[in-house]
Design a protein around this nucleic acid. Structure first.
Length: 487
RNA sequence: GUCGGGGUAGCUCAAUUGGCUAGAGCGUAGCACUCAUAAGGCUAAGGUUGUGAGUUCAAUCCUCACCCCCGACACCA
């Protein structure tokens, strides 16, 4: 049994879960289930990122304490487990969990002990736009002015911040990239981050003054500061494993410096944080880097970014309510590109639902199981040898998973389904069985076995349906209602 | 602006190192069938492969120019 670790990024809990994060969760869940079925021991992590100024402000606006505010959201995100049909043994870490906060502080201490976080804060220039009531960074400014309020002068103040010595780890990071050509998937994302690092790394600030923004993990040894939110959030990937207390579990799943083992899923806006900053943080703390970062694209709607004002927001919960969890899972696997942006509209979804699920899988189950129920009474004929365990995945299917190409894996299945449909048409067992019962039964039995195999391939992607098919096969019944009613 | 990726059937995408009539799925139309969710099968229509030039016996693929689209270019959790 190989240990397998996979985590999503932790969504920031200042809004309801959107379909983009549902995509990341479902992708990770499909991979986790596949590895489990392939015999690995799986640790699958997700959670919520709950600190920082945005949450602090929203909580105050809502007249709630930050903790009460994030508690509500954490519940919504935790509920995705049911909505999306995620694995039962999924781990869910919250960055406001006590053990996480302790881990983040220990992580900070190690970085500091190793000389990668300054002992004393540095002075940090802050540009503040009075019009926006926000701090502005260089890249946000046009000609040194706020593009929204170019007539207003920026207020420049100095603030003390702790800095992380990103620059000092540049050679080590480059070296890790060079030795691990598949570290970031897909390759064009890897090229982007390599180009970024090649331009030279600058140290970044990693704390905030508590008096301005208290909602964060306290910096060890300096009560005037809290950690900048992303610093503590990244540590969640290992605090979920019980680091630093449970080193056995940590090393088992996160791996060692010689053999890193952690797979991380993330959106394309996360490359820098996950593939560069977090990796150097791990190096700074003397811990193993991640093994691979898998970057997916964004889900758009009608060719545009989803936004409330455009009214094109796809709500995963609403889809599940109308079509069911597996319908959404299958669509995300089959029709959302594993790495590029994809368009998601209800029209496309419905079309795909009817084609893949109602006319495809659902109908195939009905037609085969009807014949089996009517013409095969002796289940021994049907099942043949008992080969339910120890089957091997087809190479093409397994390879698709190795490359994180769930679209290819799902397509492999839909092609298999088309092949079986064609075979029924060509061999016409429903006619044959009336002329020659034995010959007809033989073909029907083979079809049932093929269906059973399809169910096995479906198991990681749409587990609920796959189990239902297996049960129908065991009981030799056709579904009482269509598995996926045509819409 | 610099660098990178891309523009192929109504839609989403494929086409090993340039080489037979540029493919698939969905959608559309027709035909025969009936085990099935009027589902499934077969057939068909549909493309001057962004534009213009060039290299070559031969270009979706290589070169140049141009037009569009997308991404990266650090403090966006």
């Amino acid at each position: 049994m190989q240990p397998f670790y996979i985590t999503t990024t932790l969504p920031y809990v200042n809004a309801d879960p959107h379909v983009g994060f549902a995509l990341e969760l479902v992708q990770a869940d499909i991979i986790a289930r596949y590895r489990e079925l392939a015999g690995d021991e799986v640790f699958f992590n997700t959670g919520t990122d709950e600190h920082g100024v945005k949450i602090y402000r929203k909580a105050l606006e809502a007249g709630k304490s930050p903790q009460a505010y994030v508690n509500e959201y954490a519940e919504k995100f935790r509920n995705l487990k049911n909505v999306l049909g995620l694995s039962d043994d999924i781990h869910f870490i919250r960055t406001t969990d006590e053990r996480h906060k302790k881990a983040a502080q220990e992580f900070w201490r190690r970085c500091q002990q190793n000389g990668f976080i300054d002992e004393k804060p540095r002075l940090y220039k802050i540009r503040y736009c009075v019009g926006c009531e926000l701090e502005k960074t260089d890249s946000e400014l046009v000609d040194g002015k706020c593009p929204v309020h170019p007539n207003l002068e920026l207020e420049i103040t100095e603030e003390e911040n702790y800095f992380f010595k990103f620059s000092a780890l540049e050679p080590k990071l480059k070296d890790y990239y060079a030795r691990n050509p598949d570290f970031v998937v897909p390759d064009f994302r890897f090229n982007e981050i390599k180009a970024f690092v090649d331009r030279g790394l600058e140290d970044f600030s990693t704390s905030r003054l508590k008096e301005k923004m208290p909602w964060g993990v306290p910096v060890p040894g300096d009560e005037k500061h809290v950690m900048y939110v992303w610093f503590d959030a990244l540590v969640s990937y290992i605090s979920t494993l019980g680091w630093p207390d449970d080193m056995a579990q940590f090393e088992k799943f996160w791996g060692t410096i010689e053999t890193p083992n952690a797979i991380q899923m993330a959106g394309k806006d996360q490359i820098r944080q996950q593939a560069a900053m977090w990796q150097t943080m791990l190096m700074a703390a003397g811990l193993p880097p991640s093994k691979q970062i898998v970057i997916h694209g964004f889900v758009q709607s009608g060719g545009q970014k989803m936004s409330k004002s455009l009214g094109n927001v796809i709500d995963p919960v609403a889809i599940v309510n109308e079509y069911g969890t597996d319908a959404l899972r299958f669509y995300l696997a089959r029709h959302i590109h594993p790495f590029e942006d994809s368009d998601f509209t209800m029209e496309k979804f419905k079309e795909a639902y009817n084609a893949d699920l109602a006319n495809g899988i659902g109908n195939l189950v009905s037609r085969i199981m009807k014949m089996s129920a009517d013409y095969i009474k002796d289940t021994n004929i049907r099942m043949g040898t008992n080969d339910t365990n120890g089957y091997e995945y087809p190479k093409e299917y397994a390879r698709a998973f190795d490359l994180y190409n769930l679209q290819a894996a799902a397509e492999y299945i839909t092609q298999g389904i088309a092949r079986i449909d064609r075979r029924i048409q060509e061999t016409e067992p429903f006619k044959l069985v009336k002329r020659d019962a034995a010959a007809g039964q033989k073909i029907i039995a083979e079809l049932v076995r093929e269906l059973s195999f399809v169910a096995q391939l479906l198991l990681p992607i749409i587990p609920e349906t796959a189990l239902e098919i297996e049960q129908l096969v065991r009981e030799n019944k056709m579904p009482e209602k269509p598995l996926f009613p045509r819409k």
